[in-house]
Write a protein that binds this DNA or RNA. Structure first.
Length: 840
RNA sequence: GGGCUCGUAGCUCAGUUGGUUAGAGCGCACGGUUCACAUCCGUGAGGUCAUAGGUUCGAAUCCUGUCGAGCCCACCA
């Protein structure tokens, strides 16, 4: 291996090689980790869609998860990060349908078996793309335990779960109103329906009273459903219509006679206050219909076309029927008026087609029963949600949960393990014995299977060693947008089947937005594709750009310049390392000599603690910022600069070694690469399995360390002086200093050298003070112009005034803690002193 | 209708339990390249912390109202 580092860090060449080394080492598998490792730390990776492509949302999740995993691995824990992919029922099926549509086919023409063959071929083709991309992000997950939600063992787990719940009476089948996507030809759960604000019309239609010339006016957004009306309803309090209650309406077009009923769910103030009731095609109407035992007439079929019940409109589309009905009503002078109206249109979350509420035979889970312990688990603090405010959202959803429709009329998925023969129904994994059994054709909601993710990936329903060791998992990490879809379902499922929580902490990251603060959209081209970015700027830079400046649960923006900025940081680390590794070898012991030595070791020590505690408290941004600040603005800007005149090579090596460890969870590639060039790439030496560095307290003399801060301040002041007075950087300056701490500088040859080098100083002279720092006054032998002096006097005077008024406030003196009061007094004394010097 | 988040420098954002004269990155201005890095170094300008009240010795931070931006949930046809 070439130890000499190139001038700049070239991620493209390095990263895939590094990942291969990690993977081949076997250390992603906790069984192979060295050492005793008593504690465990485990996480299940949220499985991405097997045929999908990695986007920044995934990248965010993978980064945070991998930081936690690498950190805990270095903390000496038996650490498992279990990866996998999801079959993603609807999404994948849509993709395959699009594919076969190109050859003029649809799935029904193809048939179930042939379609599934195509889908599996598609999965095979793209299934490795996403796992390759997960590797590209640096995820240190155990591929030997990888799962796919439709692989054999996982399918067996899904079937077992279904059968058990069915036998326990938690799953039932029934005719109920469901959300129906006409494009997917499938039922959807409430969560898979998105409401989109749409401009539409509100039509006011005259409904004639039976046996009268009078009529009631109903307002509707869906005139075509009037063919399925089985009542007209008003609020019982509504005086306008009281006298009509109990009478009947002669429904236009169909001339059916329907009752006028009352229901308190009717809003008197909306529209005309009279509502047409269509139990078959509206959620609320369905409930009202059920309570009033109204008949149900299905006029829209699963194909989105009118049924035979729609009479003359049979076979027509909803849109066409609406159009014709409105025309007819107008012709018959039954259309009173039409208003513009904005309402929420229900659409399929996956394909965007309008969703029709209609009645259909589906499988449901009694969710309320499952929700109870899931609520308790969070309430009791067994499960902690970060950020905590999402607990409220979780409770609201759980408390109002409705039965979960789990059957889908899709082919790509787990076929429901229920068998029929005549009137007989059997739930079982295998076909019951005997002739003539036919399996339910439907498949299960994808989220039913992913709800089992934390424990089925560890071997459930078998009682495995893994399950005992790694469940409950330590943390689940995901975007807040799938709190209900996944986190809530996993909690319910785990508590039901495992009788234990699936994870102790839920960390929810924010969603990634584009530079304008909008959701990234592939079709609009506003998204940033992480994969080309990793190639251009390096994965480590991407990882930092997803962590720094972000907070749990808060959406954040990502754009290329940001990534480029972190690339610069990575390059800085590369070059600091290049500098240190190019120094002559030194076998010297770690001895702290100068105040700079004490200072930098002290700062490093604080960094160790800071990063560890921030990771443990899920404050990844703070941890990452501390790493960034230390390396660039403390180590590189000060210590490495100084080492050019006064070198302590063992310390340089020590800092670099420790820094590589501390920053490794965040920027694994560059750190491992530098490490392996330095220490050799032997498997035992890999950075990823090093121990988290220990405390340096014993080494540090705190006072000496603090002295260096004085040097920093002095250097900065002199540089400032130089810039203000336009003194060329190379022009030598004479500075003289005295005061309480002047000894610090003059007695220490390192410090004198440091100052001379950093500030290009020479000579000493005694004169009145030009500037002062706490305990130190200095004179720069250069004529200060009046303008800048005046400016400084004004600033100091203002500050003094502020302090004086604070300290003359009796209440402040009486009530503020003594420490605060005395520190304010010190400040005032200092400033007065400073002012005096300035006025001399 | 219910709920949540955000509003801090030109831009993107930090700011932990209230306590130095409110910070960073980018951008901008000025200056700097033999000797790790121009993906660099130094210095600087720039903010009445959306707004009005309140609590407090003390508020960007806690409370209330208002304005503005965004999001989630929900069966107003």
């Amino acid at each position: 291996m070439n130890k000499e580092l190139e001038k700049t860090y070239l991620p493209k060449k390095i990263e895939s090689r590094i990942y291969q080394i990690w993977e081949k080492s076997g250390y992603f598998n906790p069984d192979n980790l060295p050492g005793p490792r008593k504690q465990t730390f485990s996480m299940a990776m949220p499985p991405p869609n097997v045929t999908g492509e990695l986007h920044l949302g995934h990248a965010t999740a993978l980064t945070i998860e991998d930081i936690l995993i690498r950190y805990h691995r270095m903390q000496g824990k038996k650490t498992l990060y279990l990866p996998g992919t999801d079959h993603a029922g609807i999404s994948t099926q849509i993709m395959v349908e699009k594919l076969i549509a190109k050859s003029g086919l649809d799935r029904h023409k193809l048939g179930r078996a042939a379609f599934l063959k195509q889908a599996w071929a598609w999965k095979k083709k793209y299934g490795t793309r996403i796992t390759g991309q997960i590797r590209q992000l640096g995820a240190s997950c155990d591929w030997s335990r990888e799962h796919f939600t439709m692989d054999e063992t996982f399918t067996a787990a899904v079937q077992t779960a279904f059968v058990r719940m069915y036998k326990d009476g938690l799953i039932y089948r029934g005719d109920r109103i469901v959300n129906w996507c006409t494009r997917c030809s499938s039922a959807l759960s409430d969560l898979e329906v998105k409401h989109q604000q749409t401009t539409s019309k509100l039509w006011y239609i005259k409904y004639p009273l039976f046996g009268s010339t009078k009529y009631l006016v109903v307002a509707t957004t869906r005139p075509e459903t009037m063919l399925g009306d089985t009542a007209v309803a008003v609020n019982p309090q509504d005086k306008r219509y009281k006298r009509y209650v109990g009478k009947t309406i002669l429904l236009p077009l169909t001339n059916r006679e329907v009752p006028i009923i009352t229901d308190k769910r009717i809003d008197m103030n909306f529209g005309s206050g009279v509502v047409k009731i269509t139990p078959a095609h509206d959620n609320l109407d369905y409930e009202i219909g059920a309570d009033h035992k109204l008949p149900i007439i299905n006029v829209i079929g699963p194909d989105g076309r009118m049924t035979k019940e729609a009479g003359e409109f049979y076979g027509k589309s909803v849109q066409e029927t609406r159009h014709q009905i409105l025309q007819r009503l107008e012709d018959e002078e039954l259309l009173e008026k039409t208003l513009d109206y904005i309402h929420n249109l229900a659409r399929c979350d996956r394909c965007g087609s309008p969703v029709e509420p209609l009645i259909s035979k589906q499988w449901f889970i009694k969710a309320k029963i499952l929700a109870k312990p899931a609520i308790a688990a969070v309430k009791s603090g067994q499960i902690k949600i970060v950020p905590q405010r999402f607990e409220k959202v979780y409770f609201h959803w759980m408390n109002n949960i409705k039965d979960w429709c789990i059957s889908r009329q899709l082919w790509w998925g787990h076929q429901i393990p229920v068998w029929y023969r005549g009137d007989q129904v059997r739930a079982s994994i295998t076909k019951p014995s005997g002739q003539g059994w036919r399996q339910d054709e439907d498949t299960l909601d994808t989220w039913f299977s992913s709800g089992l993710w934390t424990f089925s990936t560890l071997g459930w329903p078998k009682k495995t060693k893994d399950l005992k060791l790694y469940h409950p998992t330590s943390v689940i990490e995901t975007g807040w947008d799938i709190l209900f879809f996944w986190v809530a379902r996993m909690t319910m499922m785990s508590l039901y089947f495992m009788k234990e929580i699936p994870f102790k902490t839920v960390y929810l990251h924010g969603l990634v937005l584009d530079r304008h603060g909008k959701k990234m959209s592939k079709s609009k081209g506003t998204g940033v594709d992480p994969i080309p970015m990793t190639e251009k700027y390096g994965t480590d830079a991407i990882r930092l750009s997803l962590i720094l400046g972000t907070t749990a649960g808060q959406d954040f923006r990502v754009y290329e310049e940001k990534i480029a900025g972190y690339r610069n940081f990575i390059n800085k680390l590369w070059n600091v390392s290049r500098f240190i590794l190019s120094q002559p070898k030194s076998k010297g012991k770690l001895i702290l000599k100068s105040s700079a030595d004490h200072w930098i070791i002290n700062r490093l020590n604080q960094l160790k603690k800071n990063v560890a505690s921030n990771i443990e408290n899920y404050r990844f941004s703070d941890a990452g910022t501390a790493i960034y600040e230390f390396l660039w603005h403390e180590f590189a800007d000060w210590y490495v600069e100084i080492s050019k005149v006064e070198k302590n090579i063992p310390i340089l090596n020590y800092i670099l070694e420790n820094f590589l460890k501390i920053s490794h969870p965040f920027i694994p590639f560059v750190t491992e690469e530098i490490w392996s060039r330095w220490k050799g790439g032997a498997k035992k030496n890999l950075l990823m399995i090093q121990d988290w560095p220990s405390d340096d307290k014993k080494l540090i003399n705190k006072k000496t360390s603090e002295q260096f801060q004085l040097i920093i301040n002095l250097v900065t002041n002199i540089r400032n002086f130089r810039a203000v007075h336009k003194i060329p950087p190379r022009a030598k300056l004479s500075v003289y200093f005295w005061g309480k701490h002047s000894h610090t500088i003059t007695s220490n040859s390192n410090n004198v050298k440091t100052l001379a080098y950093l500030d290009k100083l020479e000579g000493q002279k005694q004169r009145k003070a030009t500037g002062s720092l706490p305990g130190l006054e200095y004179f720069i032998d250069y004529k200060q112009d009046n303008h800048s002096k005046k400016k400084e006097i004004t600033a100091v005077s203002q500050y003094i005034q502020k302090l004086e008024s604070k300290l003359s406030n009796k209440k402040f003196l009486a009530k503020a803690p003594p420490a605060i009061v005395s520190s304010e007094k010190d400040k005032l004394a200092e400033q007065r002193d400073k002012l005096q010097k300035l006025l001399k």
